[in-house]
Amino acid sequence: MTFVLITSSLTMLGAVDASKAGDKPKTLRFLASTMVLGLIFAGLHIREWFGLFDAGIKLSSGLFGQTFFSITGLHLLHVITGVVALGVVARKYSSGSLTPGHVETTGLYWHFVDLVWMFVVPLVYLTNIAR
């Protein structure tokens, strides 16, 4: 999941760069790649959640369940929102109603979501993984 999200940040950089250079098809290709990677991340996340449900870990399973599902759930919500935002920006950028500045701003949001994940992984997953 970390690999997917960091890779999506790289494709987002490609989209921002291509939009600044005025290369619309390339921008849309990179934005689509970022969206696909975001959806893969969301899919893996939901799959992981169902695995935990099967293991009996739920939101009501004490402090760990509440912390885990609230933090990862909020992050997942931001990823899904980002994918929707990328779709809207891609459509409006291709029609010419949005500028490369809008693509860059959406890119900053996407990188921020990636940045938050860099703290979620060590503090939520890794401190509990071998304990």
């Binding site: 790289l10 950089l13 490609g14 760069d17 291509a18 250079a21 290369d23 860059e104």
Partner: peptide, 14 residues
């Protein structure tokens, strides 16, 4: 906002 550059080399750069 950051200065713009030529498209195509940003992936290799980062």
């Amino acid at each position: 906002m950051a200065a713009s550059g030529r498209s195509g080399n940003v992936i290799a750069k980062y």
